[in-house]
């Protein structure tokens, strides 16, 4: 509970920071011309995707992305891991992220390269990711990781080692990473290994100071909110709206990361 409270506080602090940055930049924009092309505009979540006070991601800087945005007008994002859904009316997960980010980071062309392989374990994805980084030269990797390792009973320490090694490799190659955490299913609430992998992911991310989009917690909130009727979180996750919500959480986490470059490392 204590840690949840702390993270909530961190989330609130980040919100204040973003608001302050937005106000400061807005005033700055009025005072000077031309306006900064990358004014932050952390879009509110759509009604379907509201998660109350549930923290969706810890604020961590994305220094390389911030530095790239200062130099050029293109942001290249490589997505790895399972693709959360189909194209749908809004163009799907990747298209929604691209559209939100292009709105938030005005004047920036966001290019998303999808190289996800569904069912792939973290270790296999990590090997392939190095090649993809070399070939596609992304500024940011969006890595949905953990669910397959949890379902395949990969030992948590092995998972942690893979994750840490890969994050270090990405940092050494000046590529930022945003991790997308495990999927939610109420049946997995009592699964010790699933919880252990989730916990491991969070701990490694905290130690390495990288963002984890807490999809599981977000969907858990949806589940609790839907208790009195309506669609369950699992059903919701499978809909286009569920996929869009994840895209919104990811886009929010990235904009937070871009403008959180001066934050001290998390403990």
């Amino acid at each position: 509970m204590a840690s949840r409270g702390t993270t909530t506080l961190q989330g609130a602090r980040a919100g204040v920071l973003i608001a302050a940055l937005a106000v400061a930049l807005a005033f700055d924009a009025r005072a000077q011309t031309p306006a900064p092309s990358t004014a932050p505009a952390a879009a509110p979540f759509t009604k379907d995707c509201q998660v109350g006070a549930t923290p969706i991601a810890d604020e961590s800087p994305l220094p390389n992305v911030a530095s790239v945005l200062a130099k050029r007008k293109t942001l290249r994002i490589l997505t790895m891991g399972a693709s959360p859904g189909p194209a749908g009316r809004h163009g799907g997960y990747s298209a929604v992220i691209e559209s939100i980010l292009e709105r938030a980071l005005k004047g920036i062309d966001v290019v998303i390269i999808n190289r996800g392989v569904s069912g792939e374990l973290a270790a296999d994805a990590a090997f392939r990711m190095k090649n993809e980084v070399a070939l596609d030269e992304p500024d940011l990797v969006l890595w949905q990781v953990g669910t397959n390792d949890a379902l395949a009973y990969v030992p948590a320490d092995q998972f942690a080692s893979t994750l840490k090694t890969q994050i270090d490799w990405l940092k050494n190659h000046k590529v930022d990473v945003v991790l997308v955490g495990l999927q939610f299913a109420s049946q997995m609430l009592r699964d010790a290994h699933y919880a252990e992998i989730r916990d491991t992911l969070r701990k490694v991310a905290a130690r390495e100071n990288v963002i984890v989009v807490r999809y599981y917690e977000a969907m858990q909130f949806v589940e609790e909110a839907a208790r009195e009727g309506g669609v369950s979180a699992e059903e919701f996750e499978l809909t286009e709206s569920g996929s869009n919500c994840l895209a919104q959480y990811v886009a929010r986490a990235i904009t937070l990361g871009v403008f959180a470059k001066n934050l001290p490392p998390r403990r």
Binding site: S83, P84, G85, L151, Q187, M188, E235, T239
Partner: peptide
């Protein structure tokens, strides 16, 4: 059988269940 919709998202199957027409 196992009341676990997580399996519907396994192995790139999500598109088949979410958006069956193009899938």
């Amino acid at each position: 059988e196992f009341s676990n919709p997580l399996l519907l998202q396994w192995h790139n199957a999500a598109a088949v269940f979410n958006d069956p027409v193009p899938a």
